[in-house]
Structure formats: structure tokens, C-alpha cells
Design a protein around this nucleic acid. Sequence first.
DNA 1: TTATATACCTAACAAACTTAGGTATATAAA
DNA 2: TTTATATACCTAAGTTTGTTAGGTATATAA
Lengths: 112, 112
Amino acid sequence: MSTNPLLKGTLQTVILKLLEDHTEMYGYEITQKVKEISAGDVLLTEGALYPALHKLEADGFLETFTQIVDNRVRKYYRLTEQGGKEVTNKVTEAEAFIDQLQTLLSLKPAVK
Amino acid sequence: MSTNPLLKGTLQTVILKLLEDHTEMYGYEITQKVKEISAGDVLLTEGALYPALHKLEADGFLETFTQIVDNRVRKYYRLTEQGGKEVTNKVTEAEAFIDQLQTLLSLKPAVK
DNA sequence: TTATATACCTAACAAACTTAGGTATATAAA
DNA sequence: TTTATATACCTAAGTTTGTTAGGTATATAA
């Protein structure tokens, strides 16, 4: 019943931020890290994650390389130089969004 | 150029919250109130607003009545009883979303 | 008479999800 | 041994929710 896009358009921002903090990650690892950080509250669906990664790569923000571990393929992602700049932009945008939403919903904890 | 869904899936929540605080509002008034509260940062597009209002009404969260003012029609919206409960749900959901996003982006100001 | 503000609306398109599949290997449990 | 779970990648159909771009109409200021 829950039509619940958990990250509401901020998935790209979260991915970029994780890659800023962890340098190199593969898709499955990202789902686990998000689950861990959010204490199990945010469960990325693969149908959202993989297309998002491919788009970020196509846009020039990520680059990839593959490794074989235990006979299984891992596709690692890493920020490009352009991607490094984009993290800052997207995080700033997310902060503004949170700020606006808190204002509109009267959730601001204190006066700015 | 800005593909900027300013409210990223929270438009319904914002509308319901405004109607909780102001009892009765019409569409155009909502756009002006959002602009005012956000200091001009959030400009609702009518193509998003009106369908959202119609959906909230169809879902039983809002009821309407019309008034003529200066020969022009105003369609007022008001929360139904069910809508009154839904505000709480949706605002709680939005708070959780903000919290999760702040955690994932390392934006949390302090430890909880 | 032209532009801006007020006031409603819809339709075509795009973005970003969910849901539901598919392929394949390693390992723990029944 | 076979079944389930974890690991690891992927895509396609459908839905929701927005943008963009129109349309109609009245009041008022330039």
C-alpha cells in the first residue's frame, strides 16, 4: 500500500555523498551501508539504485572498474573530478530543501 | 534548465499543514502563502498544485465550497475529519524523512 | 490598449521511483 | 541433497508527481 519513495529525489545526492566519504564502493555495498547508517530505516531498492548509478556515470560524475571476488563480479564506483564538485552542489541543494520544508511545516527548532 | 521539483513529493503534506493552520484557503491563496512563508524561495506551479488539491479531495482529505468575489470564482478547501488525522501522519512522515536524510548526508547538528 | 494580478483548469511530457522479474555464485540449514 | 539466504549484477512495465505550456476569464494599473 505504501507508495513511498523513501528518498524523494535525493538518492543521487546520497550516493555521491557516500562515495565522497568512502572513495570506492560497489552497488550492493551501497545498499548495505545505507541500511547500516539509517539503522535499517532506509532500504534501497535495486530498481532505483542501479539506474541511478548508471545515470551518474553517464553524466560524468562517476567512473567504474570491476573486480572478481569469490568468482563474483563487483562493479566499483568512484567520483570523477566533476563528481567531486557535484557533491557540494547537491548537498547544498538538499540542505536548502530541508530548510524550506521545515519552514513550511513549522518544524524549525529555533530562529535562524 | 532547472529540473527542480522544489517540494520533492511533500506538496500534499505542505497543503494539508497550511489548511490545518488556516482552516480555509483557495488555490491561489495557497501559492501566495507558500511564497510568503518561504520568503520567495518556493514558487508553486499551478500544474502541480491544482491536481494535488483534486487528488486530496478525491481521497477524502479535503472538502470544497465556492464563493464569488469581485465577479471571480474562488474555490475554497478545508480539511475533512479524515484529513485532520492525515496531517499528523504526513508531518510525522516528513520529519522522519528529514531525519534520515540528515543522517545519510552527515548533516545532523548533534547527537540525538 | 496593454500588461499585470487574480483565479480556475488541463494535457503532453519527463523524472524518479516501485514492483517484479531475470541471471549467477557461495554458503548455511534442513 | 536440496533448499533458502546472502551476495552481486541487471532490466522493463507501470505509477506517481512533478514541469512546461497551454487555455479561459475578470479587475485594475500603466
